[in-house]
Amino acid sequence: MTKPFTKHAVSSPDAVFRSPVNRSLQAWLLLILVALIWGTSFILIKHSLTVFSAMQVGTGRIFLALVFFLPYLVVRWRQFPRSRWLPLLGSGMLGYLIPAVLFATAGAHLNSSLAGTLNALSPLFTFLIGISLFGRQAKTQQIGGILLGFAGSVFLVFFSNTGSFEFNGYAFLIVLATLCYGFNINIVARYLSDLPALLSTASTFSLVGPIALLGLATTDFPARISAPGSTPALLMLLTLGMIGSGFATILFNRIIQLKSGVFASTVTYLIPVVAVLWGLFDGEPLHWPQVAGMGICLLGVYLINKK
């Protein structure tokens, strides 16, 4: 006799997407996609700087991200979370505007591979800020994974340019940018994670986008756009802003919602792989310390997320 159908016999579609297994899989897939997008951003910064200044690249990509979100903001302006304006502004400044300018400034003096690998310091600062200011708890294994990733990052900082021991002072600007990222990830996880990812991201850029426009207005950006041969650099800057700072940020905030801020910050361990591959394609040299450093970083990712 056939068992009668009941409402409990088959899980609803919503239950399927809420299940821990599916949430974890979605988080990992989004993590890989964001790593691909952000890993490509360093080579885009490098070639954008052939026409535009560091200030123009940094502020321009943030303003273009605002342009990307503008249609959504116009339609949903009533839904802007006014009570969250302060964490939204803090997230926008620390997570996007300030790091964008710092990375562009450093990108004028570092190759894209090194800039991408230095990004892997973010999880360390995310962890330290989380436990010191936001009361986050950490397991011994998680601490070991983050420290291992940090060790791999330090290895890359000192060896990735030539294969010999050296240090570039502009690397400090990227370290400062990753410190900002650490604050931002904790702010999003603590104060904004309950907001829909699209609403949260669009609201953030609605606050910092006008600030970026003011910074851009102080430069000769219009003259550089109209200069002969500027089109390729302008297209790269558009990609940086709309895809790198716009679309990918939605995905990143969704990762924080699905898992945690620390898990989301591990995207910076995968970014160096993409950045180095783009560097090779662009003629930048690859030395064995880079390969070793990336391997150590990826082992840290495994330990951080191992059950």
Rank of each mutant, 00 (worst) to 15 (best):
L216S: 03
L30V: 00
T268Y: 03
L30W: 00
A202S: 15
R84N: 10
F52W: 02
Y72E: 03
N168D: 13
P81A: 04
F281H: 10
L270I: 01
S265G: 07
Q141I: 14
G145L: 09
I225Q: 06
G90I: 11
L234Q: 07
K306L: 12
R23M: 01
T117M: 15
V291Q: 04
F158W: 03
I146A: 12
A275S: 15
L31D: 00
L86Y: 05
I45F: 01
I37T: 11
I131T: 12
G58Y: 04
F221Q: 07
A275R: 01
L102K: 00
L30C: 00
W28M: 08
I45M: 05
L36I: 13
V291Y: 11
L44K: 01
T162V: 01
T249V: 15
G135M: 09
V10Y: 13
S12I: 08
L36P: 07
G130D: 02
L277E: 05
R23L: 03
L234W: 06
S200N: 14
Y191R: 05
F52S: 00
Y72T: 06
V276L: 13
P272W: 08
A65Y: 05
A35I: 00
I243A: 11
V51N: 09
F127H: 04
L44H: 00
L179E: 11
G283F: 06
A27P: 01
T2L: 13
L73E: 05
L277M: 12
R76F: 14
L33I: 11
V208A: 02
W77G: 06
V51T: 15
G209P: 01
D220C: 02
A120W: 02
V276G: 02
D14R: 11
M93N: 04
S19N: 06
L33D: 02
F103P: 00
C297F: 06
V267K: 01
T201R: 04
V10Q: 11
L44M: 14
S12N: 09
F183W: 15
K139Y: 08
G163F: 07
L148E: 08
H8M: 09
I225Y: 10
R224T: 10
T59A: 14
P87K: 06
A197E: 10
A189N: 14
L270Y: 05
